[in-house]
Design a protein around this nucleic acid. Structure first.
Lengths: 341, 341
DNA sequence: TTGAAAGCGCTAACAC
DNA sequence: GTGTTAGCGCTTTCAA
């Protein structure tokens, strides 16, 4: 394990010069810089992060706090963030909450993060007031990804708008009994659901369609959760002719439930989701696509920029786009007027 | 940011005693230990990982090298590892190779050497000879998860056996033209494919079934990859009556291709995969289940054990189990005798 | 049982 | 353009 001293001795220079040369700082002659980088490579010198961290206060490490690594959305965001961080020479420290409140508490409340990372990326969750204070107290760049959070930089889509587009698509096709399947609202670990419910309701309101509370249901944000909730929703006497599921994974669950009930999609039931999950095309699922990996990249770029002194001003809201496939169609027997177009 | 000195001053003891007290080392009076822990809590003292690392050589961090975080299998393994590491107070440094050879090179040749981690978990890939040397040179615990690697501790399933079970299931149903869909063999990033191909061939051989090279094909280890490869395989004149796909994600792609070609499963085509992916049940996919998250846990437990001095002797091979669902059945017009049972 | 002092391997002032 | 000298905040001898 060659240290900076070994390199210095090898080239007969001081460790200070070696340090400067290796970090590309000014004030080193070209000749010496070359000698140093060459010797460093030959000796296989790699600086000790602990020593660098202690001496400089920089860890070149970013914490990424994720509700569930195993969910498609978060995996993609992590990958996007990792690409950017790696390119910039930063390491990624992964904190997976896995739905455990204890894990969440531990991450935010013990100052785990304090002297360990240069910046923090929080995925998919809206920090509580208390958590926000602690994040601010770090005095380090923080970005929320996949959720909007007041007073903190965030990069996300407009969840309410996405839901309005999805629901609006169904309404425009002529559906009037449109069900909503979302995540449980008190889930602190993932906040998109509440905004999506709001968007759903807004779309109904905008078009003067009556709102039926019995057409709203919640479940886990997974295929299994969507399937179970849809089974309930579709079991009733006056079932919806269309369902908007707050994520593609849930929507896929809806498709499954429909199949089990002998309903065909889209003739008996239209289904729309949000995400454009990698399997959405596979299921011919109409959905509102969002740039997922890109959100991870932007979040990482943002904290990196702040770290280097640039301070981009505003939170970013990325665009979404309706992707119409064949899981949606006009209702077989419209109980209302057809599409406005 | 309270430091150890602040705590020491607060309780009128030396930093040495405070350090000992906080780490539970012997040689501190009960009274003082209490005073110290109490003061530390009051002051919100958190040791600086950089300083600890520099002074003690321990980072309480484990590197996890993963080919693709976004693939289901790896997400699950990471989650399993994270659970164990977090419980033990270790942090997880994620290195996602994302299929980039440059990333792989950098991780093995630079990052790992940097005294940054106490142990390394390598997921799904078999280290090259060169990489093995570097891992060994770290002088730190290393575990390979999801792949067997000679000379290194590993926890995995027996991929060949799993493939033999899957293929054998199809053969026992009476299929004689059984296709194989695997990952590209020269993919250094994920090694299960070659063992699975071997298992497929072994199953044919064991039963004296002729081996048709044209029934073997490769693709990406994804739904899209499986779909594309299956489309090719099923386009031929004398198509297989059954396909064994080397992963459930590929198998799901096969189901899709079959549907697109108007083939029904299982009457026209039987399909079997490996993994028991979270969506396998959803697709009624017959598969060979493997304990994925558990592999991550075992890998993490192993390196942690080694770190505390215990050195468990052998690599672990976890059991797999055939899960029969409805994607497999006897061929409609068997060209050979029926099942042996 | 406790403390003093010497590092761990770097970076950062400040001289030269 | 380069070297010297202090630390960064802990842990770890070694003495007491």
């Amino acid at each position: 394990m060659a240290g900076i001293k070994d390199v210095a001795r090898e080239v007969s220079l001081s460790t200070a010069t070696v340090s400067r040369a290796l970090r590309g700082l000014p004030g080193v002659s070209d000749a010496n810089r070359l000698k140093v980088t060459d010797a460093a490579r030959r000796l296989g010198y790699v600086p000790s992060p602990s020593a660098v961290g202690l001496a400089s206060g920089q860890t070149r490490t970013v914490a990424v706090i994720v509700p569930h690594v195993t969910r498609w959305f978060f995996g993609e965001v992590v990958q996007g963030a990792e690409e950017v961080l790696r390119t910039a020479g930063y390491d990624l420290l992964l904190y997976n909450l896995a739905g455990e409140p204890a894990a969440r508490h531990r991450v935010f409340h013990t100052d785990l993060l304090s002297k360990r990372v240069d910046a923090v990326l929080v995925l998919g969750l809206r920090p509580t007031e208390e958590e926000r204070r602690r994040l601010a107290g770090l005095g380090r760049p923080v970005a929320i990804v996949g959720a909007a959070a007041p007073d903190l930089f965030s990069v996300s889509i407009d969840d309410e708008q996405a839901a309005r587009i999805a629901t609006g698509h169904l309404l425009d096709l002529g559906h009037t009994r449109v069900g909503y399947l979302g995540g449980s609202l008190d889930s602190l670990d993932f906040v998109a659901p509440s905004a999506r419910l709001a968007g759903y309701r807004a779309a109904l309101r905008e078009r003067g369609i009556e709102h039926h509370p019995e057409l709203e249901d919640v479940g886990e944000f997974t295929v299994a959760g969507g399937r179970a909730a849809a089974a309930r929703l579709l079991a009733g006497p006056d079932r919806p002719t269309a369902i908007f599921a707050a994520s593609d994974e849930m929507a896929i669950g809806v498709l499954r439930a429909a199949r089990e009930l002998g309903l065909s999609v889209p003739s008996d039931l239209s289904v729309v989701g949000i995400d454009d999950h990698e399997l959405a095309g596979f299921f011919d699922l109409t959905t509102v696509a969002q740039p997922v990996r890109e959100q991870g990249r932007r979040g990482a770029e943002r904290v990196l920029a702040e770290l280097t002194g640039v301070r981009p001003p505003e939170s970013e809201v990325l665009p979404v786009e309706l992707v119409v496939r064949t899981s949606t169609a006009a209702p077989a027997c419209p109980s209302a007027a057809g599409p406005s177009a």
